[in-house]
Design a protein around this nucleic acid. Sequence first.
DNA 1: TTTCTATGTTGTCACCGTCAACTTTGGAGA
DNA 2: TCTCCAAAGTTGACGGTGACAACATAGAAA
Lengths: 208, 208
Amino acid sequence: MTKSYHHGNLRAALIDAAVGLAREGGPDAVVLREMARLVGVSHNAAYRHFSDRDEVMAEVAAFGMGQLEAAMRSGIATVRSRDPKVRARHSLREVGRAYVHFALENPGLFTIAFTVMHGEPSEERAAEMVAPYALLNEVLDELLASGAMPAKRRPSADMSCWSAVHGFSLLHLTGPGVEVPSPGEPMVEREAALDDLLMTIERGLIAP
Amino acid sequence: MTKSYHHGNLRAALIDAAVGLAREGGPDAVVLREMARLVGVSHNAAYRHFSDRDEVMAEVAAFGMGQLEAAMRSGIATVRSRDPKVRARHSLREVGRAYVHFALENPGLFTIAFTVMHGEPSEERAAEMVAPYALLNEVLDELLASGAMPAKRRPSADMSCWSAVHGFSLLHLTGPGVEVPSPGEPMVEREAALDDLLMTIERGLIAP
DNA sequence: TTTCTATGTTGTCACCGTCAACTTTGGAGA
DNA sequence: TCTCCAAAGTTGACGGTGACAACATAGAAA
Protein backbone atom coordinates (compact mmCIF):
# COMPACT_ATOMS: atom_id res chain seq x y z
CA MET A 1 0.00 0.00 0.00
CA THR A 2 2.81 2.36 0.85
CA LYS A 3 3.13 4.11 -2.46
CA SER A 4 5.99 6.25 -1.29
CA TYR A 5 9.40 6.20 -2.82
CA HIS A 6 9.93 2.48 -2.89
CA HIS A 7 7.34 0.57 -4.75
CA GLY A 8 7.56 -2.81 -3.09
CA ASN A 9 7.56 -5.15 -6.02
CA LEU A 10 8.02 -2.98 -9.01
CA ARG A 11 9.36 -5.81 -11.10
CA ALA A 12 6.12 -7.76 -11.00
CA ALA A 13 4.09 -4.62 -11.62
CA LEU A 14 6.20 -3.76 -14.63
CA ILE A 15 5.85 -7.24 -16.07
CA ASP A 16 2.13 -6.94 -15.55
CA ALA A 17 2.04 -3.70 -17.46
CA ALA A 18 4.20 -5.18 -20.18
CA VAL A 19 1.84 -8.12 -20.56
CA GLY A 20 -1.05 -5.72 -20.87
CA LEU A 21 0.68 -3.75 -23.56
CA ALA A 22 1.67 -6.93 -25.33
CA ARG A 23 -1.90 -8.15 -25.29
CA GLU A 24 -3.19 -5.02 -26.96
CA GLY A 25 -0.50 -4.10 -29.40
CA GLY A 26 1.92 -6.95 -29.83
CA PRO A 27 5.71 -6.70 -29.64
CA ASP A 28 6.04 -3.08 -30.74
CA ALA A 29 3.62 -1.93 -28.08
CA VAL A 30 5.88 -3.12 -25.28
CA VAL A 31 7.60 0.17 -24.59
CA LEU A 32 9.70 0.63 -21.47
CA ARG A 33 8.63 4.19 -20.93
CA GLU A 34 4.96 3.34 -21.33
CA MET A 35 5.27 0.52 -18.81
CA ALA A 36 6.76 2.99 -16.37
CA ARG A 37 3.97 5.46 -17.03
CA LEU A 38 1.32 2.83 -16.40
CA VAL A 39 2.88 1.82 -13.11
CA GLY A 40 3.32 5.45 -12.17
CA VAL A 41 7.07 5.41 -11.94
CA SER A 42 9.74 7.27 -13.81
CA HIS A 43 11.31 6.01 -16.99
CA ASN A 44 14.54 4.22 -16.17
CA ALA A 45 13.10 2.74 -13.01
CA ALA A 46 12.82 -0.48 -14.98
CA TYR A 47 16.57 -0.62 -15.35
CA ARG A 48 16.88 -1.55 -11.67
CA HIS A 49 15.01 -4.78 -12.46
CA PHE A 50 15.81 -5.55 -16.07
CA SER A 51 19.07 -5.13 -17.84
CA ASP A 52 17.40 -4.69 -21.13
CA ARG A 53 14.20 -4.37 -23.06
CA ASP A 54 14.97 -7.86 -24.31
CA GLU A 55 14.81 -9.11 -20.76
CA VAL A 56 11.31 -7.69 -20.39
CA MET A 57 10.30 -9.30 -23.66
CA ALA A 58 11.67 -12.61 -22.44
CA GLU A 59 9.51 -12.28 -19.35
CA VAL A 60 6.41 -11.58 -21.41
CA ALA A 61 7.29 -14.47 -23.69
CA ALA A 62 7.59 -16.83 -20.76
CA PHE A 63 4.24 -15.66 -19.45
CA GLY A 64 2.70 -16.23 -22.85
CA MET A 65 4.13 -19.71 -23.05
CA GLY A 66 2.70 -20.49 -19.65
CA GLN A 67 -0.73 -19.34 -20.75
CA LEU A 68 -0.44 -21.35 -23.93
CA GLU A 69 0.46 -24.46 -22.00
CA ALA A 70 -2.47 -23.93 -19.67
CA ALA A 71 -4.81 -23.55 -22.62
CA MET A 72 -3.49 -26.76 -24.12
CA ARG A 73 -4.00 -28.61 -20.84
CA SER A 74 -7.56 -27.34 -20.70
CA GLY A 75 -8.07 -28.67 -24.19
CA ILE A 76 -6.87 -32.13 -23.22
CA ALA A 77 -9.06 -32.04 -20.15
CA THR A 78 -12.18 -31.91 -22.28
CA VAL A 79 -11.53 -35.37 -23.70
CA ARG A 80 -14.01 -37.91 -22.31
CA SER A 81 -13.24 -41.11 -24.19
CA ARG A 82 -12.08 -44.18 -22.26
CA ASP A 83 -10.73 -46.35 -25.07
CA PRO A 84 -6.95 -45.64 -25.17
CA LYS A 85 -6.69 -45.28 -28.92
CA VAL A 86 -9.68 -43.03 -29.26
CA ARG A 87 -8.65 -41.08 -26.20
CA ALA A 88 -5.15 -40.48 -27.52
CA ARG A 89 -6.44 -39.37 -30.90
CA HIS A 90 -8.94 -37.02 -29.37
CA SER A 91 -6.31 -35.61 -27.05
CA LEU A 92 -4.10 -34.85 -30.00
CA ARG A 93 -6.93 -33.07 -31.73
CA GLU A 94 -7.81 -31.03 -28.70
CA VAL A 95 -4.28 -29.85 -27.92
CA GLY A 96 -4.05 -28.74 -31.50
CA ARG A 97 -7.35 -26.95 -31.37
CA ALA A 98 -6.48 -25.29 -28.08
CA TYR A 99 -3.13 -24.17 -29.49
CA VAL A 100 -4.75 -22.46 -32.45
CA HIS A 101 -7.53 -20.91 -30.41
CA PHE A 102 -5.08 -19.48 -27.95
CA ALA A 103 -3.01 -17.99 -30.74
CA LEU A 104 -6.02 -16.37 -32.40
CA GLU A 105 -7.42 -15.05 -29.16
CA ASN A 106 -4.10 -13.75 -27.86
CA PRO A 107 -2.21 -12.56 -30.93
CA GLY A 108 0.12 -10.26 -29.05
CA LEU A 109 1.19 -12.74 -26.41
CA PHE A 110 1.47 -15.57 -28.89
CA THR A 111 3.61 -13.55 -31.25
CA ILE A 112 5.98 -12.46 -28.51
CA ALA A 113 6.19 -15.98 -27.12
CA PHE A 114 7.62 -17.03 -30.46
CA THR A 115 10.01 -14.18 -30.93
CA VAL A 116 13.64 -15.01 -30.88
CA MET A 117 15.62 -13.78 -27.96
CA HIS A 118 19.35 -13.97 -28.12
CA GLY A 119 20.32 -14.18 -24.49
CA GLU A 120 20.93 -17.55 -22.88
CA PRO A 121 18.04 -18.22 -20.53
CA SER A 122 18.29 -20.04 -17.24
CA GLU A 123 17.72 -23.77 -17.10
CA GLU A 124 14.33 -23.27 -15.52
CA ARG A 125 13.30 -20.59 -17.95
CA ALA A 126 14.33 -22.76 -20.86
CA ALA A 127 12.06 -25.51 -19.59
CA GLU A 128 9.21 -23.03 -19.28
CA MET A 129 9.69 -21.94 -22.86
CA VAL A 130 9.32 -25.45 -24.24
CA ALA A 131 6.50 -26.57 -21.96
CA PRO A 132 3.90 -26.55 -24.74
CA TYR A 133 6.22 -28.61 -26.88
CA ALA A 134 6.79 -31.02 -24.02
CA LEU A 135 3.06 -31.36 -23.53
CA LEU A 136 2.55 -32.18 -27.17
CA ASN A 137 5.17 -34.89 -26.83
CA GLU A 138 3.30 -36.41 -23.91
CA VAL A 139 0.19 -36.69 -26.02
CA LEU A 140 2.14 -38.24 -28.87
CA ASP A 141 3.70 -40.74 -26.50
CA GLU A 142 0.21 -41.67 -25.44
CA LEU A 143 -0.77 -42.05 -29.07
CA LEU A 144 2.20 -44.33 -29.62
CA ALA A 145 1.56 -46.38 -26.47
CA SER A 146 -2.05 -46.89 -27.44
CA GLY A 147 -0.89 -48.56 -30.60
CA ALA A 148 -2.71 -46.11 -32.83
CA MET A 149 0.47 -44.86 -34.50
CA PRO A 150 3.30 -46.86 -36.06
CA ALA A 151 6.48 -46.55 -34.00
CA LYS A 152 8.58 -45.31 -36.88
CA ARG A 153 6.37 -42.24 -37.16
CA ARG A 154 6.96 -41.14 -33.61
CA PRO A 155 10.33 -39.37 -33.97
CA SER A 156 9.12 -36.73 -36.39
CA ALA A 157 5.51 -36.64 -35.27
CA ASP A 158 6.10 -33.77 -32.83
CA MET A 159 7.53 -31.48 -35.46
CA SER A 160 4.79 -32.38 -37.94
CA CYS A 161 1.96 -31.66 -35.54
CA TRP A 162 3.53 -28.55 -34.15
CA SER A 163 4.28 -27.20 -37.61
CA ALA A 164 0.72 -27.67 -38.72
CA VAL A 165 -0.99 -25.85 -35.88
CA HIS A 166 1.69 -23.20 -35.65
CA GLY A 167 1.47 -22.45 -39.33
CA PHE A 168 -2.30 -22.39 -39.29
CA SER A 169 -2.23 -19.93 -36.42
CA LEU A 170 0.26 -17.57 -37.95
CA LEU A 171 -1.29 -17.63 -41.38
CA HIS A 172 -4.57 -16.57 -39.86
CA LEU A 173 -2.86 -13.91 -37.80
CA THR A 174 -0.56 -12.35 -40.36
CA GLY A 175 -1.07 -14.22 -43.61
CA PRO A 176 -1.67 -12.22 -46.77
CA GLY A 177 -5.05 -12.66 -48.32
CA VAL A 178 -6.41 -14.50 -45.33
CA GLU A 179 -9.52 -12.54 -44.52
CA VAL A 180 -9.67 -11.19 -41.02
CA PRO A 181 -12.95 -12.52 -39.66
CA SER A 182 -15.17 -10.23 -37.71
CA PRO A 183 -16.93 -12.46 -35.22
CA GLY A 184 -19.60 -14.26 -37.15
CA GLU A 185 -19.71 -16.39 -40.23
CA PRO A 186 -16.02 -16.56 -41.15
CA MET A 187 -15.29 -18.05 -37.75
CA VAL A 188 -17.29 -21.07 -38.81
CA GLU A 189 -15.26 -21.51 -41.98
CA ARG A 190 -12.09 -21.14 -40.00
CA GLU A 191 -13.14 -23.80 -37.54
CA ALA A 192 -14.03 -26.12 -40.39
CA ALA A 193 -10.62 -25.57 -41.95
CA LEU A 194 -9.00 -26.24 -38.60
CA ASP A 195 -10.96 -29.46 -38.19
CA ASP A 196 -9.83 -30.60 -41.60
CA LEU A 197 -6.23 -29.72 -40.82
CA LEU A 198 -6.29 -31.69 -37.59
CA MET A 199 -7.87 -34.68 -39.28
CA THR A 200 -5.39 -34.55 -42.14
CA ILE A 201 -2.46 -34.65 -39.77
CA GLU A 202 -4.07 -37.42 -37.76
CA ARG A 203 -4.61 -39.53 -40.87
CA GLY A 204 -1.06 -38.83 -41.94
CA LEU A 205 0.29 -40.13 -38.66
CA ILE A 206 -1.99 -43.13 -38.40
CA ALA A 207 -2.46 -44.32 -41.97
CA PRO A 208 -0.47 -47.45 -42.79
CA MET B 1 25.35 8.36 -64.72
CA THR B 2 24.70 11.98 -63.91
CA LYS B 3 24.89 11.77 -60.13
CA SER B 4 24.08 15.42 -59.72
CA TYR B 5 21.07 16.66 -57.87
CA HIS B 6 18.48 14.41 -59.38
CA HIS B 7 19.15 10.76 -58.98
CA GLY B 8 17.20 9.36 -61.89
CA ASN B 9 15.41 6.45 -60.32
CA LEU B 10 15.84 6.87 -56.65
CA ARG B 11 12.78 4.84 -55.87
CA ALA B 12 14.24 1.65 -57.30
CA ALA B 13 17.58 2.30 -55.67
CA LEU B 14 15.92 2.78 -52.31
CA ILE B 15 13.94 -0.42 -52.63
CA ASP B 16 17.15 -2.15 -53.51
CA ALA B 17 18.82 -0.87 -50.39
CA ALA B 18 15.79 -1.79 -48.32
CA VAL B 19 15.87 -5.35 -49.64
CA GLY B 20 19.53 -5.56 -48.75
CA LEU B 21 18.88 -4.39 -45.22
CA ALA B 22 15.92 -6.74 -44.93
CA ARG B 23 18.06 -9.67 -46.03
CA GLU B 24 20.63 -9.02 -43.36
CA GLY B 25 18.66 -7.90 -40.39
CA GLY B 26 14.98 -8.60 -40.92
CA PRO B 27 12.17 -6.09 -40.42
CA ASP B 28 13.86 -3.94 -37.79
CA ALA B 29 16.88 -3.42 -40.00
CA VAL B 30 14.84 -1.66 -42.65
CA VAL B 31 15.54 1.89 -41.53
CA LEU B 32 14.64 4.81 -43.76
CA ARG B 33 17.68 6.85 -42.82
CA GLU B 34 20.01 3.93 -43.41
CA MET B 35 18.53 3.32 -46.84
CA ALA B 36 19.16 6.94 -47.69
CA ARG B 37 22.74 6.69 -46.44
CA LEU B 38 23.38 3.62 -48.55
CA VAL B 39 22.09 5.29 -51.68
CA GLY B 40 24.00 8.45 -50.84
CA VAL B 41 21.05 10.73 -50.49
CA SER B 42 19.72 12.74 -47.60
CA HIS B 43 17.23 11.38 -45.12
CA ASN B 44 13.75 12.44 -46.17
CA ALA B 45 14.53 12.00 -49.83
CA ALA B 46 12.55 8.80 -49.58
CA TYR B 47 9.43 10.77 -48.77
CA ARG B 48 9.24 11.91 -52.38
CA HIS B 49 8.71 8.28 -53.39
CA PHE B 50 7.04 6.63 -50.42
CA SER B 51 4.41 8.06 -48.17
CA ASP B 52 5.45 5.93 -45.32
CA ARG B 53 7.87 3.41 -43.93
CA ASP B 54 5.01 0.96 -44.28
CA GLU B 55 4.97 1.56 -48.00
CA VAL B 56 8.63 0.62 -48.19
CA MET B 57 7.96 -2.51 -46.18
CA ALA B 58 5.12 -3.40 -48.53
CA GLU B 59 7.54 -3.10 -51.42
CA VAL B 60 10.07 -5.37 -49.76
CA ALA B 61 7.31 -7.80 -48.88
CA ALA B 62 6.14 -7.94 -52.48
CA PHE B 63 9.70 -8.55 -53.62
CA GLY B 64 10.05 -11.35 -51.10
CA MET B 65 6.82 -12.95 -52.24
CA GLY B 66 8.06 -12.83 -55.81
CA GLN B 67 11.26 -14.56 -54.84
CA LEU B 68 9.35 -17.14 -52.88
CA GLU B 69 7.09 -17.86 -55.82
CA ALA B 70 10.11 -18.22 -58.10
CA ALA B 71 11.71 -20.64 -55.68
CA MET B 72 8.54 -22.69 -55.58
CA ARG B 73 8.37 -22.80 -59.37
CA SER B 74 11.96 -23.98 -59.49
CA GLY B 75 11.04 -26.72 -57.07
CA ILE B 76 8.20 -27.91 -59.26
CA ALA B 77 10.47 -27.80 -62.28
CA THR B 78 12.69 -30.48 -60.81
CA VAL B 79 9.92 -33.07 -60.99
CA ARG B 80 10.58 -35.63 -63.72
CA SER B 81 7.80 -38.20 -63.36
CA ARG B 82 5.36 -38.73 -66.25
CA ASP B 83 2.58 -40.60 -64.53
CA PRO B 84 -0.01 -37.95 -63.54
CA LYS B 85 -0.61 -39.21 -60.03
CA VAL B 86 3.05 -39.59 -59.19
CA ARG B 87 3.86 -36.33 -60.85
CA ALA B 88 1.24 -34.43 -58.88
CA ARG B 89 2.38 -35.94 -55.62
CA HIS B 90 6.00 -35.15 -56.31
CA SER B 91 5.09 -31.62 -57.33
CA LEU B 92 3.32 -31.10 -54.05
CA ARG B 93 6.35 -32.34 -52.15
CA GLU B 94 8.73 -30.14 -54.07
CA VAL B 95 6.75 -26.93 -53.71
CA GLY B 96 6.66 -27.60 -50.02
CA ARG B 97 10.36 -28.29 -49.84
CA ALA B 98 11.16 -25.19 -51.87
CA TYR B 99 8.95 -23.09 -49.62
CA VAL B 100 10.77 -24.20 -46.50
CA HIS B 101 14.21 -23.89 -48.04
CA PHE B 102 13.50 -20.38 -49.21
CA ALA B 103 12.30 -19.39 -45.76
CA LEU B 104 15.35 -20.81 -44.03
CA GLU B 105 17.75 -19.30 -46.52
CA ASN B 106 16.09 -15.89 -46.59
CA PRO B 107 14.82 -15.31 -43.07
CA GLY B 108 14.62 -11.55 -43.35
CA LEU B 109 12.73 -11.44 -46.63
CA PHE B 110 10.46 -14.28 -45.63
CA THR B 111 9.57 -12.68 -42.34
CA ILE B 112 8.76 -9.34 -43.93
CA ALA B 113 6.75 -11.00 -46.67
CA PHE B 114 4.47 -12.34 -43.96
CA THR B 115 4.16 -9.20 -41.92
CA VAL B 116 0.78 -7.62 -41.81
CA MET B 117 0.39 -4.34 -43.58
CA HIS B 118 -2.67 -2.31 -42.92
CA GLY B 119 -3.00 -0.28 -46.08
CA GLU B 120 -5.20 -1.49 -48.91
CA PRO B 121 -2.92 -2.60 -51.72
CA SER B 122 -3.66 -2.24 -55.39
CA GLU B 123 -5.38 -5.05 -57.26
CA GLU B 124 -2.15 -6.03 -58.94
CA ARG B 125 -0.14 -5.87 -55.76
CA ALA B 126 -2.71 -8.01 -53.97
CA ALA B 127 -2.32 -10.67 -56.64
CA GLU B 128 1.44 -10.51 -56.27
CA MET B 129 1.12 -11.08 -52.54
CA VAL B 130 -0.85 -14.27 -52.92
CA ALA B 131 1.08 -15.69 -55.87
CA PRO B 132 2.71 -18.44 -53.79
CA TYR B 133 -0.69 -19.41 -52.46
CA ALA B 134 -2.11 -19.45 -55.97
CA LEU B 135 0.73 -21.66 -57.12
CA LEU B 136 0.06 -24.13 -54.34
CA ASN B 137 -3.55 -24.26 -55.44
CA GLU B 138 -2.50 -25.09 -58.97
CA VAL B 139 -0.54 -28.05 -57.72
CA LEU B 140 -3.45 -29.20 -55.58
CA ASP B 141 -5.78 -28.92 -58.55
CA GLU B 142 -3.39 -31.14 -60.43
CA LEU B 143 -3.42 -33.59 -57.55
CA LEU B 144 -7.21 -33.63 -57.62
CA ALA B 145 -7.39 -33.98 -61.40
CA SER B 146 -4.99 -36.89 -61.32
CA GLY B 147 -7.41 -38.71 -59.09
CA ALA B 148 -4.86 -39.12 -56.32
CA MET B 149 -6.89 -37.15 -53.80
CA PRO B 150 -10.58 -37.53 -52.88
CA ALA B 151 -12.58 -34.53 -54.06
CA LYS B 152 -13.97 -33.72 -50.64
CA ARG B 153 -10.43 -33.08 -49.38
CA ARG B 154 -9.71 -30.41 -51.94
CA PRO B 155 -11.39 -27.39 -50.31
CA SER B 156 -9.26 -27.40 -47.20
CA ALA B 157 -6.16 -28.97 -48.71
CA ASP B 158 -4.56 -25.61 -49.49
CA MET B 159 -4.75 -24.38 -45.94
CA SER B 160 -3.52 -27.69 -44.57
CA CYS B 161 -0.47 -27.83 -46.81
CA TRP B 162 0.35 -24.18 -46.41
CA SER B 163 0.01 -24.35 -42.65
CA ALA B 164 2.37 -27.27 -42.42
CA VAL B 165 5.25 -25.79 -44.39
CA HIS B 166 4.73 -22.31 -43.00
CA GLY B 167 4.77 -23.56 -39.46
CA PHE B 168 7.80 -25.74 -40.06
CA SER B 169 9.64 -22.76 -41.50
CA LEU B 170 8.83 -20.37 -38.70
CA LEU B 171 9.47 -22.85 -35.94
CA HIS B 172 12.94 -23.40 -37.35
CA LEU B 173 13.48 -19.68 -37.70
CA THR B 174 12.16 -18.39 -34.40
CA GLY B 175 10.97 -21.40 -32.44
CA PRO B 176 12.14 -21.81 -28.86
CA GLY B 177 14.30 -24.80 -28.23
CA VAL B 178 14.75 -25.52 -31.88
CA GLU B 179 18.47 -25.67 -32.18
CA VAL B 180 19.96 -23.29 -34.72
CA PRO B 181 21.98 -25.51 -37.01
CA SER B 182 25.40 -24.41 -38.05
CA PRO B 183 25.89 -25.87 -41.51
CA GLY B 184 26.64 -29.53 -41.02
CA GLU B 185 24.95 -32.37 -39.25
CA PRO B 186 21.80 -30.70 -37.94
CA MET B 187 20.88 -29.78 -41.51
CA VAL B 188 20.52 -33.48 -42.19
CA GLU B 189 18.14 -33.97 -39.28
CA ARG B 190 16.16 -30.98 -40.38
CA GLU B 191 15.84 -32.31 -43.90
CA ALA B 192 14.71 -35.66 -42.55
CA ALA B 193 12.09 -33.96 -40.40
CA LEU B 194 10.94 -31.98 -43.41
CA ASP B 195 10.66 -35.12 -45.51
CA ASP B 196 8.56 -36.74 -42.82
CA LEU B 197 6.33 -33.68 -42.56
CA LEU B 198 5.73 -33.61 -46.30
CA MET B 199 4.96 -37.32 -46.36
CA THR B 200 2.61 -37.03 -43.41
CA ILE B 201 0.60 -34.32 -45.09
CA GLU B 202 0.56 -36.25 -48.33
CA ARG B 203 -0.73 -39.37 -46.62
CA GLY B 204 -3.29 -37.28 -44.80
CA LEU B 205 -4.62 -35.92 -48.07
CA ILE B 206 -4.55 -39.16 -49.98
CA ALA B 207 -5.43 -41.82 -47.42
CA PRO B 208 -8.99 -43.11 -47.76
C1' DT C 1 21.30 6.61 15.96
C1' DT C 2 24.23 6.16 12.07
C1' DT C 3 25.34 4.39 7.80
C1' DC C 4 25.15 1.94 3.66
C1' DT C 5 23.00 -0.04 -0.19
C1' DA C 6 18.65 -1.10 -2.65
C1' DT C 7 15.73 1.35 -5.42
C1' DG C 8 13.88 5.55 -7.99
C1' DT C 9 14.80 9.98 -10.23
C1' DT C 10 16.69 13.61 -13.30
C1' DG C 11 19.23 14.77 -17.07
C1' DT C 12 21.27 13.64 -21.23
C1' DC C 13 22.55 11.35 -25.70
C1' DA C 14 21.97 9.15 -30.15
C1' DC C 15 18.73 7.40 -33.23
C1' DC C 16 14.44 7.00 -35.51
C1' DG C 17 10.06 8.43 -38.32
C1' DT C 18 7.79 12.35 -39.84
C1' DC C 19 6.50 17.17 -40.99
C1' DA C 20 7.42 21.84 -42.87
C1' DA C 21 9.97 25.08 -45.35
C1' DC C 22 13.68 25.94 -48.51
C1' DT C 23 16.66 24.94 -52.86
C1' DT C 24 17.91 23.01 -57.09
C1' DT C 25 17.10 21.17 -61.54
C1' DG C 26 15.53 19.94 -65.98
C1' DG C 27 12.05 20.18 -69.17
C1' DA C 28 7.55 22.33 -71.21
C1' DG C 29 5.81 26.22 -73.37
C1' DA C 30 6.61 31.18 -74.85
C1' DT D 1 16.37 30.32 -77.13
C1' DC D 2 14.63 31.96 -72.86
C1' DT D 3 11.46 31.65 -68.94
C1' DC D 4 9.30 29.71 -65.34
C1' DC D 5 7.44 26.00 -62.65
C1' DA D 6 6.68 21.69 -60.69
C1' DA D 7 9.11 17.66 -59.41
C1' DA D 8 12.93 15.94 -56.74
C1' DG D 9 16.28 16.53 -53.10
C1' DT D 10 17.89 19.17 -48.83
C1' DT D 11 17.96 21.32 -44.28
C1' DG D 12 16.13 21.78 -39.92
C1' DA D 13 13.07 20.72 -36.41
C1' DC D 14 9.92 17.90 -33.16
C1' DG D 15 8.40 14.16 -30.36
C1' DG D 16 9.25 9.54 -29.02
C1' DT D 17 12.39 5.71 -27.76
C1' DG D 18 16.22 2.79 -25.45
C1' DA D 19 20.17 3.41 -22.90
C1' DC D 20 23.76 5.50 -19.84
C1' DA D 21 25.55 8.33 -15.87
C1' DA D 22 25.08 10.93 -11.87
C1' DC D 23 22.18 12.02 -8.14
C1' DA D 24 18.55 11.36 -4.29
C1' DT D 25 16.12 8.79 -0.91
C1' DA D 26 14.31 5.31 2.04
C1' DG D 27 14.66 1.61 5.00
C1' DA D 28 17.18 -2.08 7.03
C1' DA D 29 21.42 -3.39 9.24
C1' DA D 30 25.07 -1.90 12.34
